[in-house]
Design a protein around this nucleic acid. Structure first.
Lengths: 341, 341
DNA sequence: TTTTAGCACTCATCTAATGGGAGTGCTAAA
DNA sequence: TTTAGCACTCCCATTAGATGAGTGCTAAAA
C-alpha cells in the first residue's frame, strides 16, 4: 500500500508529465508547491515507486516517467474530475440544436470533440442490427430499373438500385411488395434473409411469374449492410503529440485508422459506460503508446454506439473523461428523443 | 529549342530521379546505356539545361533534380505511355464485376487505385446537381415521425427523418405528397426549394391544415445536401514517399485531406479528360511538393465525377496516367450501363 | 568548334570527441 | 527519518575531421 506522500508524489509526477511530456526529476518536483521535503527525500520515494512499478526511468540518470501500471493507478485512484468550461459545454450543446440529421450530428460530434480535446475522436454510428422491419418498398424508376427500400422501426433506411427482370410487370411488383410486407414487417432485419428464403419464397412463387430473378435481386437488397460507420475527427491531431514525431509510429496508427476494421471491432465490443484502455491493454501492438477512452450512447435503454478518444498514453484523462461523459449523455438524450420510436 | 541530346539527358535525369529520388550526377548518367559521351560533356549540357530552368541543384555540388518546369516539359513532351499489366487490368475490371452498389464501387476503386499506384487516390462521387425529381414520398413511422424520401431520375435517393406536426393527419400527408409529385416531378432538384416556396405553397395551403410546420420540414428535406462525397484510398501512402518524411509536410497534406473542402473544390472544377497539375500549379502552398493527376468519368455523355491521384512531384506519371485512363473509362462504361436511365 | 581529361573546390553526411546539464544513487551527518 | 553533498551516468548539442559524390573551369585532344 502506498503512503500519502507516495500518492502525492506519484500524482504530481503524472500530472506534470501529462502536461509537459518531459521526465520529472526530483529537484523540479521539490520546488512544486505543496512539497515540504527535499529532493533527496523525493529521490528515495521515487526509488520505491519505481520498485513498485509505477514509474520508470528512460535511462540511468533521467527523471521519472509514469509506467503503464502508473497510469492505470492514476486513472483508477488519483483522477480529480475536471470541470468542463462553459465554452466547451456550449460547443457540445450546439451540436444538437440546429441540425437533426443523424449522420451530420455524429460527424460534427467527432469533429468538435477532437477540437476540444486536441486528440483524435472516433465515433461508431448507431447499430441497426436489432432494428425491425417497418416497411418494405419498391420504387420503379423505369422499365428496367427500380429501387428497393427498407425502413426499420428506428427510422433507419437502406436502399438499393436493382435491375428488373424483363418479364416482371408492375402487378407482379405490387404483389411481391404486398406479400413481403405482410410477412416480414416486424421481423428483426438480421433474420429477413433467412425468413425470405425459408417461408416467403413459396408464397411469391405461387403469385408471381418469374419469381427467381426477382428474388435474387430482393435477397441482395435484404442482405442489410451493417451501416454502422466509423466517423473520425482530428486524425491529424496525433501528429501534434511529441510522442508521435516518428514516421513509423505515425504510419502504424494512421494505417490502423484507415483500415477501420480494428477500431470497428474495438468500439463495437465496448461495454456500457466510460472505459479507459492504456497502452498495451489495447492488445494491438501499434497502440502500445496510445490510450483509448470509450463512452457508449444509447437510444432509450438500448446501447447503440460508442464515442472514443484516441490519444497518447500521456493523455489528459480527466478532461477527456469529463467531455466524453457530457457528450455521450447529450447524445443519448437527443437520439432518444428522435429515434426511440 | 532543346537539342536531341539535351532532350535525351533531360529525360534520363527525370526518369532516374523519379525512380530513385536521388539527385542525378553527370558521372552516373554517363554510365547509362544509350550514352556515348563523357561526363564532362554531360556537365556542360546540364549547365545549359539548368540555365533554361529545366533542372536544379539542391546545393552547390549536388547532382541535378528536375524543376517544376522540367516536370511540366517531361509530362507534355517526353512521356512514353506505359503499358498496364494484365494483373492490374484484372484488378480494375474486377471492381465492376461483383458489386453493383455505387458507393461501394467508388470506395473500392479508390482503394485499388491507391494500391496499384502506391500513391493516394481521391474519388469524387457522382454529382446529383442536374438530376431531376423522379418521385417524392413520405413514409410514416408512427404518429409523430415520418421519413421523407426523394428519388431522382438517375436513381439517387435522399431521405430524412422529420417530426410530424401534431395536427397533420394521414389524409393531409397524402394530399401533400400528391401535390408535390404533381407539381415537382421532372424538376431539377436544385430548383426544388424555390419552386416549392414560390409556386406550390399556395396549393398546399389551400388543401392542408397546418401547412406551415409541415412545409418547414419538407423544405428541410428538399434542401438537397450535395451528396458528392470524397472517397480516399491509401492516405498513408504519402508517408512512404521519401519527400514526406517531415512531420510538418505530412501534417499539411493530411490536414488538407481531412478538411476535404479544398480537394472537393479542385476535383469539382476539373475539366474533362486527364490532367496533370504539378507542384505550385495546384495553387495551394502545402501542395507545392505534390502533383495531382485527375481524370473524369461520366454517365452517358455527362461528366459526373472525378478520380484523382495525389503523389509527390516525383510521381510515376506515365503509369498513373495509364491506370487513371483505364479506370475512368471502365467507370464510365459501368455507370452508364447502370445509371443512364 | 566540340569533346574530353584533369583538377581544385563545395557541400552533405558520417563518425568521433568534447563539454555541459539534468538527474540519479549512495553515504554520512543533522 | 530527513537532508546535504558528491561522484557518477547518460543525453544532447556542438565541433572537428574524413569521406565521397558531384560541380565548374581550363587546357588539351579530336
Amino acid at each position: 500500500m502506498l503512503t500519502e506522500r507516495q500518492l502525492l508524489i506519484l500524482q504530481i509526477i503524472i500530472d506534470d508529465f501529462i502536461r509537459s511530456a518531459h521526465p520529472v526529476g526530483s529537484r523540479s518536483l521539490a520546488k512544486k508547491k505543496g512539497i515540504s521535503f527535499s529532493s533527496a527525500t523525493i529521490r528515495n520515494e521515487m526509488a520505491d515507486l519505481e520498485e513498485l512499478g509505477f514509474i520508470e526511468k528512460t535511462h540511468t540518470s533521467s527523471g521519472r516517467v509514469p509506467s503503464e501500471k502508473g497510469y492505470r493507478f492514476y486513472v483508477d485512484h488519483l483522477l480529480s474530475p475536471e470541470k468542463v468550461s462553459h465554452k466547451e459545454i456550449k460547443r457540445i450543446n450546439d451540436l444538437f440544436t440546429e441540425i437533426y440529421e443523424m449522420e451530420k450530428v455524429i460527424q460534427n460530434a467527432a469533429k468538435v470533440l477532437s477540437e476540444l480535446t486536441e486528440y483524435t475522436a472516433i465515433v461508431l454510428g448507431p447499430t441497426v442490427e436489432d432494428n425491425k422491419l417497418n416497411r418494405f418498398q419498391i420504387i420503379p424508376l423505369n422499365a428496367e430499373t427500380a429501387i428497393a427500400v427498407i425502413v426499420t422501426n428506428k427510422g433507419h433506411l437502406e436502399h438499393k438500385l436493382f435491375s428488373l427482370p424483363k418479364s416482371v410487370n408492375s402487378s407482379d411488383l405490387e404483389k411481391t411488395v404486398n406479400i413481403l410486407n405482410e410477412r416480414l414487417v416486424g421481423m428483426p432485419i438480421l433474420e429477413l434473409q433467412s425468413k425470405l428464403i425459408n417461408e416467403v419464397v413459396t408464397l411469391i412463387k405461387e403469385n408471381v411469374h418469374n419469381y427467381e430473378a426477382m428474388l435474387r435481386s430482393l435477397l441482395d437488397v435484404l442482405s442489410v449492410p451493417s451501416n454502422e460507420k466509423l466517423y473520425y475527427g482530428g486524425k491529424t491531431n496525433m501528429l501534434k503529440q511529441p510522442e508521435f514525431q516518428d514516421i513509423e509510429k505515425i504510419q502504424g496508427i494512421m494505417s490502423l485508422m484507415e483500415e477501420e476494421n480494428d477500431f470497428y471491432q474495438i468500439l463495437k465490443q465496448t461495454p456500457f459506460g466510460i472505459h479507459v484502455k492504456i497502452g498495451s491493454e489495447n492488445k494491438i501492438p501499434v497502440m502500445d503508446d496510445c490510450s483509448l477512452i470509450t463512452a457508449t450512447y444509447s437510444i432509450g435503454e438500448e446501447q447503440v454506439g460508442t464515442i472514443a478518444i484516441l490519444g497518447p498514453k500521456r493523455m489528459h484523462y480527466s478532461k477527456v473523461i469529463s467531455l466524453l461523459n457530457l457528450l455521450s449523455k447529450n447524445m443519448t438524450v437527443t437520439l432518444t428523443k428522435l429515434y426511440d420510436l
